[in-house]
Structures are given as C-alpha cells and as structure tokens.
Amino acid sequence: MDLISNLPNPLISHILSYLPTKEAASTSVLSKKWRYLFAFVSNLDFDDSDYQNDIGRSDAEISTSFMDFVDRVLSLQGNLTVNRFSLDCSSFDLDLDRVTGWILNVLRRGVSDLDLSVLEYTLPSEVFVSKTLVKLKLGPGEDLCLTLDRKDVFLPKLKTLYLDSVTVEERGFGFVKLLSGCPVLEELVLMNIGWEYWMFCTVSLISLKRLTFFREEEYTDENPKSVSFVTPNLVYLEYSDAVADKYPNVNFSSLVEAHIGLRLTDDQSADVNVSEDDYFPEDDEERQMTANATDFFKGISNVQILYLSAKSIEVLTFCCEPIPVFNNLIQLTIESHSDVGWDSLPGLLKNCANLETLVLKV
C-alpha cells in the first residue's frame, strides 16, 4: 500500500516543499491525485544548473526550457502564499525581464525567505520595501547589483541579511542606507566585498546580534580604508579580511565570542619586511604602522571567547600599539604558521589576567 498517497493532501504538499522544485514537479506523473499537488508547495527552489545534463540541447534551448518551467509553476500556483523562493541563475543567460517578473510575483504573494543568485542583474527596488521578508540572501553572482535610495528602503521584518559578492552602489553610502531600513536585523553576513568601489564601511545597528564579515584570503591586493562597527548588542563576530587603514568607531560592548582572521595586504607585508633601521628611524619617537588596528582590538576587549588566526597575530604585532587589556577573556585559541611569528603573544597573554583556557593550534 502506498502509505504516502494516503496522507492528507496538505501534508503531502508540505513534504514536497522540502524537495527541489524540479523533483517535486516530477511526482505529478505518479497518479491523478499527485498531478497538481506539487503546485501547492510553499517552498520553491529553482536552479538552472539542474539542466546542465540535458545532452544534445543548446544553451539557448536549455535556458528557454528552464524559464518556461518557472513560468508554469508560478502560474499554476496562482496567488497562493509562498514561504521561500530560491533562484540560482548562474549557469545560463536568461531573460532578465522574466526574472524580475518572478521576483515581483513572489513578493506580491508574501514571500518571507528570498534567496537570489543572478548574473549581471540589478535587483528591482520592490525587494527593499517588502513588508514580509524575514530572510534575504543575495549572491554569489557576478555583477549582481544593488541600487538604493534611502526613501525606498524599509524592511520592517528582516532578521537575516546575507550579501555575497554583491555590488552595492554609492561607494559605501548605499550600504548605510540599506542597513538604515532594517530596524530589527539580527544577523548580517558580508562575503567577498570588493573594496575598490567603497570609500568606507559602517555597520551600525542596535538590533544586530551576529555578524560575519568574511573575505577570501586570495584577495590580498586591496583593503578597506575605513571600517566602523556600532553594534552594542552584538554577541558573535566573525571578521576575516585585510586589515583596514583605520577603525574610527568600534562598539562591541556585549560581545561574547569573536573569530578574528585579519591579515596584511601584499603591500603592507612588504612594508613590515623593511629593515628595522629603515622602517623605524632612530629619531622617530612614535612607532610607524602600515595600518592602525589598535581601535579595533580595543573595541573587542570585552570579549570572553577569542579565536585569532596566525596572520591576526602578525596584525597585532605590526598594526596595534599598545596591545589592549582583555579583562573578560576566559578562552583564547591561537593558530600558528611557520611563516608568521608570535612576537606579540607574550604581551597579549600578559594582558589576559583572567584567562582560563589557552589553545595553540598547529
């Protein structure tokens, strides 16, 4: 006996919601009962890479087939509420007007979880005035662009924002405008931001509790000029990037756990490898630094659990003076690397009077 077919239709549709939409649609051939059940799923997941194995068809034919499938599913669902809409269009060229139509369709239907990865695409402004979005993930996507105007940004329910390799116009001001329209945001993830288009980066949110600020280590040719964090209620921080030239405003007063992976750029590394006499002339009373991370490390000095990469120790050595006091630190984990010294480690340990656990990872 087919036990699943005997379940109530709403329950079957709920189960199908956990499958990729293409797989859920394939169940329509099982019987008359199953023919339209997949159309009532509340989670929609479209990925054009699922069509890459269509042997014997051109890219244009595959792209058309994918777009027609998305159109059919959305049309079949009518005005039913959709919970999650995931769209990955990174394998084939699509009609971007149709893509915009799909996004507007699910926005009208009250989508709460929107996940978009589209190549060479400017997001419609309607995304940034949604009254139902709780989670928004954008990217990765080459030339996926956010064009923002302050009066057009208001996401009153958004709690999670994830940006990966996304271009935010207005050289940092657009990012500030985006965050200003997210009054209840609790988690922010920034992945692989290209600093060449930014004058500064400011993360200023009272509601924020978790922040991931990550950039792949392969990006060693540039660094942010100015980074500020005004996040007094943040409890978790993951920060891996080239060290900024300066940190004019840092407030992590509630921070519990931090994973720090700061590193020098190639140019900064070249500077610190200059001989001591050349780099710190005898008539200089103050130490010259390639970048100044002092304010950042002072800003995290209330942390209780701290993870430092080997290259962060290098930053602490060459870009921080003096080493801050970590009175609340009870657990410290430090990575080691054969190319990176631990010159600043004795001074750091001296300033951790209440440290209970020290882990050295090799």
Results as ranks from 00 to 15, higher is better:
224 P>N: 07
224 P>H: 05
224 P>D: 07
225 K>P: 00
225 K>N: 14
226 S>R: 13
226 S>E: 14
226 S>A: 13
226 S>D: 10
226 S>V: 07
227 V>D: 04
227 V>E: 06
227 V>T: 08
228 S>A: 04
228 S>L: 04
229 F>Q: 01
231 T>W: 02
232 P>D: 02
232 P>K: 05
233 N>H: 07
233 N>E: 02
233 N>I: 00
233 N>S: 08
233 N>L: 07
234 L>M: 09
234 L>W: 01
234 L>V: 12
234 L>E: 04
234 L>H: 01
235 V>H: 03
236 Y>M: 10
236 Y>A: 06
236 Y>P: 08
236 Y>K: 12
237 L>C: 01
237 L>S: 03
237 L>A: 03
237 L>N: 02
238 E>P: 03
238 E>V: 14
238 E>Q: 15
238 E>S: 15
239 Y>L: 15
240 S>Y: 13
240 S>D: 13
240 S>T: 15
240 S>K: 15
241 D>M: 07
241 D>I: 09
241 D>Q: 10
241 D>W: 05
242 A>T: 08
242 A>R: 09
243 V>M: 01
244 A>I: 10
244 A>H: 10
244 A>F: 09
246 K>I: 12
246 K>N: 14
246 K>T: 14
247 Y>N: 05
247 Y>E: 06
247 Y>K: 07
247 Y>Q: 04
248 P>G: 07
248 P>E: 08
248 P>Y: 09
249 N>L: 11
249 N>G: 00
249 N>T: 09
250 V>E: 08
250 V>S: 08
250 V>W: 01
251 N>W: 00
251 N>G: 01
251 N>M: 00
252 F>P: 09
252 F>R: 11
252 F>T: 12
253 S>A: 04
254 S>C: 05
254 S>E: 00
254 S>L: 01
255 L>G: 04
255 L>K: 05
255 L>S: 05
256 V>L: 12
256 V>G: 01
257 E>F: 05
257 E>T: 12
257 E>P: 00
257 E>C: 10
258 A>S: 10
259 H>T: 10
259 H>K: 15
260 I>D: 03
261 G>R: 11
261 G>I: 13
262 L>D: 11
262 L>E: 12
263 R>H: 05
263 R>V: 07
263 R>S: 08
263 R>I: 04
263 R>N: 06
264 L>K: 10
264 L>D: 10
264 L>I: 02
264 L>W: 11
264 L>Y: 11
265 T>K: 12
266 D>Y: 13
266 D>H: 13
266 D>I: 15
266 D>A: 13
267 D>H: 07
267 D>M: 08
267 D>E: 14
268 Q>H: 13
268 Q>R: 12
268 Q>E: 15
268 Q>N: 10
269 S>R: 13
270 A>D: 15
271 D>A: 06
271 D>C: 08
272 V>W: 14
272 V>M: 14
272 V>F: 15
272 V>A: 11
272 V>H: 13
272 V>G: 11
273 N>Y: 11
273 N>K: 09
274 V>I: 14
274 V>P: 02
274 V>W: 06
274 V>R: 11
275 S>F: 03
275 S>V: 00
275 S>T: 06
275 S>H: 06
275 S>Q: 02
276 E>G: 00
277 D>P: 00
277 D>S: 07
278 D>N: 06
278 D>F: 04
278 D>G: 12
278 D>Q: 08
279 Y>E: 02
279 Y>W: 08
279 Y>R: 11
279 Y>V: 00
280 F>K: 04
280 F>M: 09
